[in-house]
């Protein structure tokens, strides 16, 4: 197939970026989207031009590193999918494809299509863990966890931390990400003892990083490659309200 590509090029975090047009011939529909970019880059190198920088690693939809907005949609047109698992058979011959980085104020562009998602790290460092040292654990079957609870926790834990939810949100909100991370631990017995501290610290850190608020549009859920449900945001809001109320009443959390 022949493709017309419009790609965001930006030298570094300090410079201004712009869209640049490229044409690409002979792309197989069995290629993945990132293989298509590999082909473009090989051609650019052979022409003595700078290849397009983009983040990627596992290319099997699980590491969460790839972060492209394709024709305005983070991770592109296929639902429940990452860019690296998107294949060219989802496009048609002669199509124009616009490729931009994940855009959000807390995710500055570092070069071309590469953004800095460090605030996601900071949020998790604030509370995305259970305080348990290596060696302190009880036998794994000491505390039974109902299958329904374990399954629900797994639904939340499936989040790959890619940031598509933020990029899709008109407010640049990280609520879906933070809710997934906090809820996974708040649901299981091991996470209960520090449930309140966790949600307060993670939400505070999220706000400080400059992410916007949630206004329930649900774009985040629509683009999430792992189908993380908005229900987790509701759960986090409940946990947050409970913890805040405790704080208000002077109960230690």
């Amino acid at each position: 197939m022949k493709l017309y590509l419009r790609i965001w090029r930006q030298k570094n975090a300090q410079s201004e970026g712009r869209m640049v047009d490229y044409e690409l011939d002979d792309v197989s529909e069995d290629n993945s989207f990132l293989e298509m970019l590999d082909i473009l880059n090989e051609q650019l190198i052979s022409r003595g031009e700078e290849p397009v920088a983009f983040d990627h690693d596992c290319r099997e939809g699980i590491c969460g590193m790839c972060s492209l907005t394709i024709n305005g949609t983070p991770h592109g047109p296929q639902r429940l999918n990452t860019v690296c698992q998107l294949h060219m058979r989802k496009f048609r011959d002669g199509q124009t494809i616009t490729i931009e980085p994940f855009r959000a104020r807390p995710f500055p562009v570092m070069k071309d299509l590469v953004v800095d998602r460090t605030p996601f790290e900071t949020i998790q460092q604030a509370g995305g863990f259970v305080t348990v040292n290596t060696g302190q654990a009880l036998d794994g079957n000491t505390v039974p966890i109902p299958k329904t609870v374990a399954d629900k926790a797994m639904d939340a834990a499936a989040c790959i931390g890619c940031g598509a939810c933020v990029a899709a949100c008109k407010n640049g909100s990280a609520m879906l990400f933070t809710a997934a991370k906090a809820s996974q631990l708040n649901m299981v017995p091991q996470g209960k003892p520090e449930k309140d501290r966790r949600v307060l610290n993670m939400v505070r850190t999220m706000d400080e990083a400059g992410f916007g608020n949630c206004t329930n549009f649900g774009e985040c859920e629509a683009v999430c490659p792992k189908g993380i449900s908005l229900d987790f945001i509701a759960k986090m809001n409940r946990d947050y309200a409970t913890a805040s109320l405790k704080q208000l009443l002077g109960t230690p959390v």
Partner: peptide, 14 residues
């Protein structure tokens, strides 16, 4: 044991 204590959601029976 350690992973369970960290909250890793292993598959469970009913």
């Amino acid at each position: 044991d350690q992973c369970v204590a960290q909250g890793v959601p292993f598959a469970r029976e009913y």
